[in-house]
Design a protein around this nucleic acid. Structure first.
Lengths: 212, 212
DNA sequence: CTGGTGAACGAACGATCGGTAGGTCACCCA
DNA sequence: TGGGTGACCTACCGATCGTTCGTTCACCAG
């Protein structure tokens, strides 16, 4: 089990400070690579060998940084959920008309989704087989309820059309948001703003053009 | 490895004709169960043992009906893609204004998605690691291009607003459609029609209510 | 140049993976 | 009543899985 030269190395942390000890990966760089590989091959389809190869180290070296495969998944899902819930606690998400709060959460979700693409992608593919996944799904459900409540409020306010079931509408809405992970490529020139604008346009005004 | 009593048995085929030989599963009933279990645990997360347990037979019995795990996936994905492409060949999908053809394909996709839920769900989770998955992704890409073309045509016709990039719009649109597999439950009273109507409403007219 | 520290090493573990070989069982029809 | 047929069984294979063990390596501060 030899180390291969073509391997992803850990960039120095944000601070230029060098650490003591033998240089190499730390827990964060392992997590970052793991999330990427999990997305490429699927969590179950990724072996610790696959991870080790992507890291340029042997399998056993990974266990120096994390307790096991499940912890890598857990930490990745936590990063994603923490970022999403942070959006729902921002001022613009808690004050003002419901429809504006909804738009803020939508746009914030797009931002988080782009910034933490690998982690959020992983989150959206979780099926709930293990205990770790069940906990993540639980949190996701709370997030979804929050969205559905906003839509319901918007209908009561008269800002959102009442001829579509809020439960269905909120699901379709965030189905559209979440689908971004399926095609968004960070290095394609397309920015968060453009995606969020297109999303908000379609979601609130629709695609049909109303000629004057 | 004993057979358990609580097992899903093959219903007789559409024709009441009894087959000769020992009663039990056939290739179709195995495929149906496999697709369901693949969705519950993920393809990679599903062992042939898991399948055998769900079928109420031993692992080796499965190989009497199919050549292996990969064939089960291949056949499931083919069912899904065949059904989706069938929609694009219907009259209403090939004649008339682009925006109407687009709506027809959207509604048809919802119908297929509900009718072949397990197979389509599996299709939408494919990552392209094996050769079988790569072929399915190739077909999906052709389908997506077809949609994008319809949106572009609709813009040219003046029926679809031109202030959103057709490439982004078509992706968001079918992201919304495809997200249905994440929450739709056939036994919940919610029909294809209601979902398709809500979808068409949001997609074309948007969620905002325009008071008179 | 030495001791502390952090990272990575080779070798192996028990379990489980997808798949195979060859015989057995249960049903229908003649 | 006995073929023919289709479904299923037990027993096992080599490979790979996630994980653990004890040791070794590379760097920095003193």
């Amino acid at each position: 089990m030899a180390r291969t030269p073509a391997a992803e190395k850990s960039a120095d942390r944000s601070t230029g400070r060098r650490r003591s000890g033998r240089p190499g990966h730390d827990a964060d760089s392992v997590l970052r690579v793991a999330a990427r590989v999990f997305n490429e091959r699927g969590y179950d389809g990724t072996s610790m060998e696959d991870l080790a190869r992507a890291l340029g180290v042997t399998k056993s070296a990974i266990y120096h940084h994390v307790t096991g495969k499940a912890e890598l998944l857990r930490r990745s899902l936590e990063v994603a959920m923490d970022a999403l819930f942070a959006v729902t606690r921002e001022d613009a998400a808690t004050t003002g008309p419901a429809i504006d709060r909804l738009e803020h959460v939508m746009r914030g979700s797009v931002r988080v989704l782009v910034e933490e693409l690998p982690h959020v992608t992983l989150l959206l593919r979780v099926r709930g087989n293990t205990e770790v996944e069940k906990r993540a799904l639980e949190r996701r459900r709370r997030f979804d309820h929050l969205i559905a409540d906003l839509v319901r409020e918007g209908v009561v306010d008269g800002d959102i059309r009442s001829d579509v079931d809020p439960a269905i509408a909120s699901r379709l809405l965030f189905g559209m948001v979440n689908s971004i992970v399926e095609w968004y490529k960070p290095d394609r020139g397309l920015g968060t703003q453009e995606v969020a604008d297109a999303l908000a346009h379609i979601a609130f005004e629709g695609m049909r053009s109303h000629r004057t």
